[in-house]
């Protein structure tokens, strides 16, 4: 079930990195129906420019308090507007949208691999699946500025790496992944981040024959499968097709993506 909450009260809004913010709003209907990997579609204007909503993945929910948390990076007009919203003001939100991660698993050894803002949905996923599975995170980015500084609140183990070594190990998430694969048998990998990172992830997971789910992003209009705009080339029933990030995803099995 999707909900339109035109007046979701902002209860917390903090800067947690270079142009990176954490925002928490009240939307019990969304908090209670969401699952890891889904996203919210937020109006980022009081007028007509920007016109369209911005899709942002859910970073966590508090079902009891009815709260939804997102992380976002200011990259354009929409997110610039969002960064100016104050605690006590309201947002117009639709959610929870899309198909999330396959989180209905038990007794598995799972790696969560995130790059930059792609870490956000993995925090939510990790907090849910770490109850019944062994979960380890490998999170990275260019430098410490693009790694959200409130990561330590997560309830599963993780390792950090940056390309310049400004925080965590120096190197790429794929380096840490290779190390981990030497140490233990991994049952599944869930990943979200820039496309080159996901492509590298796919190469490794297919070599090791480890099931991989990736969360993709795209420019969207409707967010609900109406406009067919957020298309990317993938496979449906073994045939090439234009899949829609908003409805068929944003989370896909690696076999559904044309890499």
């Amino acid at each position: 079930m999707k909900f339109h909450i035109p007046n979701a009260l902002v209860v917390s809004h903090k800067k947690i990195g270079d142009k990176i913010y954490s925002l928490i709003f009240n939307a019990p209907e969304i908090a209670n129906s969401a699952s890891p990997g889904q996203f919210v579609h937020i109006r980022c204007s009081n007028g007509l420019d920007p016109l369209l909503r911005r899709p942002i993945s859910i970073n966590d929910v508090d079902k009891e308090k009815g709260l939804v948390s997102i992380w976002y990076q200011v990259v354009g007009k929409g997110t610039e507007f969002l960064s100016k919203v104050k605690v006590g003001e309201c947002l117009d939100v639709i959610g929870a949208l899309g198909r999330g991660f396959d989180s209905n698993i038990d007794g598995k050894n799972v790696l969560l691999i995130g790059g930059g803002m792609g870490i956000a949905p993995l925090i939510y996923l990790g907090s849910v699946i770490s109850k019944k599975n062994t979960v380890r995170g490998i999170f990275g980015g260019r430098n410490k500025d693009v790694i959200p500084c409130i990561l330590s609140e997560s309830n599963f183990d993780y390792e950090l790496c940056t390309e310049d070594g400004s925080i965590g190990r120096e190197g790429l998430v794929t380096d840490l992944l290779e190390d981990q694969l030497h140490k233990e048998k991994i049952d599944a990998i869930y990943s979200c981040g820039p496309k080159p990172m996901l492509t590298a992830m796919q190469r490794i997971s297919s070599r090791e024959e480890i099931p991989l789910q990736v969360s993709l992003e795209a420019v969207m209009a409707c967010g609900v499968g109406a406009c067919l705009g957020c298309a990317f080339k993938g496979y449906r029933d073994g045939e090439e097709a234009w899949l829609k990030v908003c409805k068929d995803g944003p989370v896909f099995w690696d076999s559904e993506v044309k890499w």
Binding site: L52, A218, V219, M220, G229, F232, W242
Partner: peptide, 18 residues
Amino acid sequence: GNSAPRLVETPAGLINSI
């Protein structure tokens, strides 16, 4: 349908090529 990208936002508007 057409190849991606299929959408681009413009001031108070949207261009699609679905």
